[in-house]
């Protein structure tokens, strides 16, 4: 029985996720208390906004240790945007902040230099190139458009954990996957049919 927990730690817009999951007729709930996470088969960690605020809220509600425990049991976890970034070791947003360290990666801002005159934040639909068409990317084309809105991006230490790449002046990681730990820099819940497909894949194939 597949049941999705959408972690509600007090930040970000959850409406678009609930609209998307309802459209897909998925069984899901917003989980506000970490004790309840164990009742679910899949976890989505959404997020927009500041890394520091996000991590502080996760810690205050003890979601950090609860997520770690569930992931260690092999439960699939999907981090979206800030939710993806918080799975990394650290971010330099708003001063140094430690992340959940579920994946060996760092989060830093795009430098003006590397994006070569493009604007920061990076906003809008942009192309991703899945490395392998399995898991969340099952059934996708070589190049797919998803919605992004971010100034910071994830740098993976292990190339093998990169699930998709994109280019914004410079090549960067638009999704990673380390066993059951998945993160997307883009917002599948705001990415039209491709996003719906990805969310469906997450519950079906992960």
């Amino acid at each position: 029985m597949k049941r999705i927990a959408v972690v509600n730690y007090g930040i970000g817009n959850l409406k678009s996720i609930s609209n998307a999951l309802s459209h897909l007729e998925q069984d899901f709930s917003f989980v506000e208390s970490q004790e309840n996470l164990s009742e679910y088969s899949h976890i989505i960690l959404p997020g927009v906004g500041s890394y520091k605020v996000g991590m502080n809220l996760l810690r205050r509600k003890k979601f950090d240790s609860a997520i770690l425990a569930e992931v260690n049991k092999g439960k699939p976890l999907l981090g979206i945007c800030l939710g993806m970034q918080m799975l990394a070791n650290r971010s330099s947003e708003d001063g140094e902040t430690k992340g959940l360290a579920l994946i060996n990666a760092e989060v830093d801002i795009f430098s003006k230099n590397e994006v070569g005159g493009l604007k920061i934040p990076h906003v809008g639909f942009d192309t991703i190139r899945p490395i392998s068409k399995t898991g969340i990317f099952a059934g996708f084309k070589d190049q797919v458009d998803f919605y992004f809105t971010h100034s910071y991006r994830v740098l993976c230490s292990n190339k093998s954990e990169i699930a998709s790449e994109s280019t914004y002046g410079i090549k960067y990681v638009s999704a990673f996957c380390k066993d059951n730990i998945i993160g997307t820099q883009f917002h599948p819940e705001k990415s039209q049919k491709n996003g719906l497909r990805l969310l469906k894949n997450f519950t079906n194939y992960c």
Partner: peptide, 28 residues
């Protein structure tokens, strides 16, 4: 409900509470 694109909401925001209300009710 049927629009899977980003949504921006605004108009008459005068307090952090107004902003919070919009962000927690569908504003990306």
């Amino acid at each position: 409900k049927h629009c899977f694109a980003p949504i921006a909401l605004g108009g008459g925001i005068r307090s952090l509470k107004d902003a919070e209300y919009l962000f927690s009710n569908g504003a990306d």
